[in-house]
Computed example of a mutant assay.
Amino acid sequence: MTPEHDARAAEDATPYRFTHAGATVVVEETGSGDRTFVLVHGIGMGRRVFGDLTDVLRPHGRVIAIDQPGYGAAPEPVRTLTMERSADLLAAFLRYRRPPGIVLVGHSMGTQVVTEIAARHPDVAAGIVLVAPTVDIEARSAARQLGRLARDLAVESPVVLVKGAQESLHAGPNLRRKMHAMLAHRPEDAYGRIDVPALVLRGENDYVSPRGWCETVVALLRNGRLAEVAGHGHETMIRDPRPAAEHILEFSDGL
């Protein structure tokens, strides 16, 4: 697909592909304006879980939702990407696309990718939002992460369960390798290198991203603050995205 074709596809909201260094993302754009919200999903998910959030954010700017390599409609890469390589890929896409006023919004594992973009490519974004950040230093194992997620999902709405199950099917046979890449990453080593403003956002009842860990993330960031969504868990942007969107919009208005 040529760059010209990519641009035309973006204008009519048709999903399109961007390939860099042997890995491919699928991109869907909607809305317009001088602010751009780039939505980066977590492990086992894809851009479609952000459909309701996109509807809330679209009146306030452009929204770009991404399928990372091996998720959603994006093809499986030859080798599972590290968080750093995922960040380099998305940074290359954003430099190519050059949308205005970028606010990176990562959910769960997506916060690790967003963190590395901000640390490694400080010119890309005006601000970042880390929703339900992983991986808590005290739970850096697959067993503990899955145990916490199971507790969270046990009280989640059927909408979250259905969307999560659908997207997990698209994550392919290499989910174990992707989990290893997520757990091997140490986001705490990158937080202190981020200069742009950062909002750390968690659901009040989030077992995967407990408040103590989120407070640690804020303390490590140079310019971070914490907000909570009452009555929500780890999937706060999926279950009912409006409260999270209000925090995201308030944060972006201050950039």
Rank of each mutant, 00 (worst) to 15 (best):
V124R: 00
A142D: 10
T54P: 09
A65T: 06
P59G: 05
I66R: 03
V56N: 03
L130T: 09
V129L: 02
V105E: 00
G106C: 05
A119T: 00
L130Q: 05
K163E: 14
G147T: 02
M109G: 02
R48F: 14
L146S: 14
V135R: 02
A92P: 02
A87I: 07
P122V: 03
A125M: 05
P77H: 12
G110R: 01
R48M: 12
A118K: 05
G70W: 00
I117Y: 04
Q112S: 06
G110F: 01
V155K: 15
V135C: 03
T54E: 10
G72P: 00
I102D: 03
L146T: 12
R79V: 09
V63W: 06
P59E: 07
V105A: 03
V160C: 01
R95M: 15
M83A: 14
A91P: 04
T80Q: 03
A125Q: 00
Q145R: 10
K163D: 06
P158Q: 05
R79I: 07
A143K: 04
S157F: 11
Q166R: 13
D136K: 06
V78W: 13
G101Q: 04
L153C: 03
V78C: 09
V131S: 11
D88Y: 07
R140G: 07
A139Q: 13
S86W: 13
L146K: 14
E84K: 11
E76D: 14
E156P: 06
I117R: 01
V162T: 09
S108D: 10
D67V: 04
G127M: 08
V131F: 12
L57D: 08
G106S: 08
A139H: 14
A91S: 03
L153V: 10
V114D: 09
L161A: 10
